[in-house]
């Protein structure tokens, strides 16, 4: 199967999601699939650029892909009929928008409009996905509270492990 892993990136910064995506790509290939990672540039600041970045992801058209595994916002807005979300560290970005951090809080009125827009976009993406998986119980609770989505927890294997044995059950769930 041709499986595309889609996740966001910041140039010249390596995050845990980048590492996990690289390991997943390798694990999928070892499991006999064709796999590639599509890294989409994204950053939360400035706030008035968030919408255009979301739209850009939404406008992508994917061909020659059997299954998409999307990790993180706004990567999971990408359109594909067979899409699984694996949401990791999700609440962090949302907190920035909520101003509980507060590095990127737009003016009050705009903040609430932006929050609503992000939430509606997320919910649309959740509705069109085959499965919604999260990396931790806290993320599950967060989505339940804010998006009324009851996701399943799928904890990534510990760092460094890329043997077929560690990843087999994970891949099975991701492609189910």
């Amino acid at each position: 199967m041709k499986i595309l892993i889609v996740h966001t990136m910041t140039p010249f910064q390596r995050t845990e999601t980048d590492e996990l995506a690289a390991r997943l790509e390798k694990a999928l290939i070892i499991a006999g699939h064709e796999s590639e990672a599509l890294r989409i540039p994204f950053q939360w600041e400035p706030a008035d650029r968030i919408t255009s970045q979301m739209l850009m992801v939404r406008a992508f058209e994917l061909w020659n892909v059997d299954h998409v595994i999307a990790m993180g916002f706004p990567a999971f807005l990408i359109r594909h009929p067979k899409k699984t979300l694996w949401v990791l560290g999700y609440e962090h970005g949302h907190d920035l928008i909520d101003g509980n951090g507060v590095v990127n809080r737009p003016p009050d009125g705009e903040a609430s409009e932006l929050r609503m827009l992000i939430r509606n976009a997320e919910n649309e993406s959740f509705r069109e996905s085959r499965r919604i998986l999260v990396g931790a119980e806290t993320t599950r609770q967060y989505l339940l509270e804010h998006n009324q989505v009851d996701a399943k927890v799928l904890v990534p294997p510990a760092g460094g492990a890329d043997s077929r044995g560690d990843w087999s059950p994970i891949i099975e769930v991701l492609l189910r």
Partner: peptide, 10 residues
């Protein structure tokens, strides 16, 4: 259209 679908008054 996408923005309208996301319910943004935009």
């Amino acid at each position: 259209r996408v923005l309208a679908h996301w319910s943004a008054d935009y």
